[in-house]
Design a protein around this nucleic acid. Structure first.
Lengths: 209, 209
DNA sequence: ATTAAACGGTATCAAAAGATACAAAACAGG
DNA sequence: CCTGTTTTGTATCTTTTGATACCGTTTAAT
């Protein structure tokens, strides 16, 4: 339990001791494995998750295509869930865990309660909404105005930054699922990049130059 | 002032008399004309606008292309940041009035302040976030997964519903700007629709069948 | 009435992306 | 080592979208 406490108080966004207490009392820590689904499209959302460790990939799907909307990372919560849970609505996208992940989960009804009690909770919620919005808009730009080669290169460069490594471990299919296209298209464009000496291709790995 | 009061209390979302009072005291009513810019890129919006009459079109622009993100309509607010576009100045987000519009405006700090006092304010804010998200996600789906003919037809059908008329007054260029493509493409596809008897084209007017 | 601007139709050519199919290489597990 | 799976390379053909250009018609403005 002390372990639990340490984890929760590490969420520095929550300043009020009473809020920390509430998170501890009513929250439940759950563990998930790579590939586990947190929310599905059409499912009612009755809980709110905060990511303690790992991340959740939120994406849309149509037939065999996928498209990433954003990732929920450590210390963050999923605003889509939040908006859905607040009004007891259905989720409009998928949320899936991409690595071993630890979530703090509590019932949706605390949402309204805490909003009236804790300023730092409110700030947290608003900040989350804004962050997601920015990510979404950023993605939008790419999809609407840029062609595939540009989008792929931008994706790779972003990954280099977040992964802190010029060597990225990802398959062509993964990139296709991020950007809403197909593997063949990705392979074709990556090959072109390689010819232009912009990167080096290995199996399951790309080295950006 | 009585006029003002009537307007504000017409915002039925706000149930608490004290909140209505606060809206009146701290809010300022401003009028805008077609074409006026409400927000451009740059920072978080430091003020909070509620649309009393009219609407705001929020869109992105890159070179000579435009793309609508969503509309802020009567009774709605837009608390979002337009910061995303600021960092990679490839495209620019705009909030522009499309018809004579009346806004109730206050300093942004009331956003969180009222959250602690008024449940109906909380509900309103979250509902707004959710609506924006839904619109964004909806648009996303279209752009990523659907081809132009589908997107155009869906746009027209939505307009038929919101306008409450099968006869839509809009130019091909306007449609192009909504969807992020060009006039020629729109004309071509509309012509095809007309051949298929799905609609009838007139100058500045489309009749959906 | 004359001119300018907005709107729409259409043709041609190029580029981008999608669909399909097949094969080789690398890998994982037994 | 053998076998099934995953990953990647690549060729071919089609569809979709974009870019440009030019023209006729309608509407608005002076």
């Amino acid at each position: 339990m002390d372990n639990q406490k340490a984890i929760v108080t590490s969420l520095k966004a929550f300043k009020e001791p009473a809020l920390q207490e509430a998170l501890l009392t009513h929250g439940q820590i759950l563990h998930f494995q790579k590939g586990d689904t947190i929310v599905k499209i059409g499912q009612y959302v009755r809980f709110l998750p905060i990511v303690l460790k790992g991340s959740i990939r939120v994406f849309q799907q149509k037939e065999d295509r996928e498209f990433s909307l954003y990732y929920v990372r450590e210390g963050e919560t999923c605003t889509m869930s939040l908006a859905a849970a607040y009004f007891n609505n259905k989720s409009v996208s998928h949320g899936v865990v991409m690595e071993p992940t630890e979530l703090l989960i509590f019932p949706a009804n605390f949402l309204t309660e805490w909003q009236l009690q804790f300023p730092s909770w409110n700030q947290y919620i608003i900040a989350m909404f804004r962050r997601r919005y920015d990510e979404l808009i950023n993605n939008f730009e790419g999809v609407v105005f840029e062609h595939m080669p540009v989008r792929i290169m931008e994706y790779l460069r972003r990954r280099v930054i977040t992964d802190e490594s010029r060597i990225l471990n990802l398959s062509h299919q993964t990139i296709a699922n991020e950007l809403g296209t197909t593997r063949v298209v990705v392979s074709r464009i990556l090959k072109q990049f390689e010819k232009e000496k912009k990167l080096k291709l290995l199996r399951g790995q790309i080295e950006i130059k």
